[in-house]
Structures are given as C-alpha cells and as structure tokens.
Amino acid sequence: MVDFDVVSLPETDHVAEGDTAPDFTRPLVNEEFWEDRALDDVVDEPTLLLFHPMDGAFQATYLYNTVDDHGWADDVQVLGLSISSPYAHKRLLAERGEGVRLFSDPGAGVVEEYGLAHDIDGMTGITESRPAVFLLDADRTVEFAWVASEHPEFPDAEAINTAIDRLVD
C-alpha cells in the first residue's frame, strides 16, 4: 500500500471559467514528432487542456488513463501540458493518451501564467503544475475549469463528461 499525506495547496489566482485561455508557444508533441506551436493556432474546435505534474508522476498516469477510459479524445481535441521534456512526452504517449498531444513547458512559464505553479517538496528550484483541467471553446474561452486544491487530487470525470456534452451538443 502506498503511504502518502494529503497536502493542502495554497490559494492561487488561476485561469477561470469565462476567461480567455492565455496563448503561448511551446513544443507540441504527438506520437511521432514535435514542433513549436501556439495554442491559438491549434485551438479551432472544443479543446480539453490538461495540466499535470511531470510525466512519471502517478497523477499524470491516472489522468491519461481517465482520458482513454472516457474516450474524450473522440469528442474534443485533448492537449496536455507539463514541465516534462518532449522525450518524456513521447514515452507517455506510447503507453496511453490515445489521440492526445502534449505541450512541453520545462521552464514552467506557461504553468506560472495560468496560475498553476507548485514547488516540488525536496527539489529546490523545481516548479511543476498542479493538476488542472480547462475545457475551451474554439475561441479559447474557458467553459469549464477545475484546479486541484490539495495534493494528490483528481478531477471529477463525470463533471468533465457533462461539460463536454454541454459544449459539443
């Protein structure tokens, strides 16, 4: 049995429902290659934008298993983002995240702009993203937002299903 403590995360001023998701340009990784892409250039349809800790963290594995289990990539475009390198993203996508593409943000600049920065205990100078889910319309307006308030915490898959259904119907 895995033993860990639940830790409350500090309040954050994150991107919220009704906001326009900030644009950024970072390497966007698919199963075959990566290239610098701007969020604005790839969001031209409903998009589920997922922020998560490093790819090796169990939260990332759980999140992309949930994406696969619920078939979200069949209903909307699914994009992820973490501080992991494109190489780590390719390994993650080889195992899960069918139809998903991942932005690489090793400097955590996008994570900070979205108000999701979380310093990793015991790793001085390393910032990663707290888990977060944003459902965007084709104009990058945030239609649904969920941001973790404790560690570990996972989004409510049924709430995401409902938000996706509401946006695409």
Rank of each mutant, 00 (worst) to 15 (best):
G56V: 01
F58N: 08
F58S: 13
Q59M: 12
Q59V: 14
T61Y: 09
T61Q: 14
Y62F: 13
L63W: 01
L63D: 05
Y64M: 11
Y64N: 07
N65V: 09
T66Q: 13
V67F: 03
V67C: 06
D69I: 02
D69M: 11
D69P: 10
D69R: 13
H70F: 12
W72A: 03
A73D: 04
A73M: 06
D75R: 15
D75A: 14
V76E: 01
V76Q: 03
V76G: 01
V78I: 07
V78H: 10
V78G: 08
V78E: 04
V78Y: 08
V78A: 09
V78M: 08
L79Y: 01
L79D: 01
G80N: 03
S82H: 05
S85I: 05
S85Y: 06
Y87K: 13
Y87C: 03
Y87G: 14
A88H: 06
A88P: 00
H89C: 03
K90I: 11
K90R: 15
R91A: 12
R91T: 10
R91M: 12
R91D: 13
R91C: 04
R91V: 12
L92V: 02
L93V: 10
A94R: 10
R96V: 10
R96M: 12
R96L: 06
G99T: 10
V100N: 05
R101A: 12
R101V: 00
L102A: 11
L102K: 02
L102V: 12
F103D: 01
F103G: 01
S104V: 02
D105L: 05
D105H: 09
D105C: 09
P106N: 04
A108G: 11
A108R: 08
A108P: 12
V110D: 00
V111Y: 06
E113I: 03
E113G: 06
Y114A: 01
Y114T: 05
G115P: 09
L116R: 02
L116F: 05
L116C: 04
A117N: 04
H118V: 11
H118D: 14
H118M: 15
D119R: 11
D121Q: 06
D121W: 00
M123N: 10
M123S: 10
M123C: 01
M123G: 01
T124K: 14
T124M: 11
T124P: 14
T124Q: 15
I126E: 08
R130D: 10
P131S: 13
A132N: 05
F134L: 15
F134C: 07
F134T: 07
F134P: 07
L135N: 03
L135R: 02
L135K: 01
L135I: 01
L136F: 03
L136P: 02
D137W: 08
D137F: 05
D137K: 04
D139R: 07
D139S: 10
R140K: 00
R140D: 03
R140F: 02
T141P: 00
E143T: 14
E143I: 07
E143Q: 15
F144R: 10
F144A: 11
W146N: 13
W146F: 14
A148P: 12
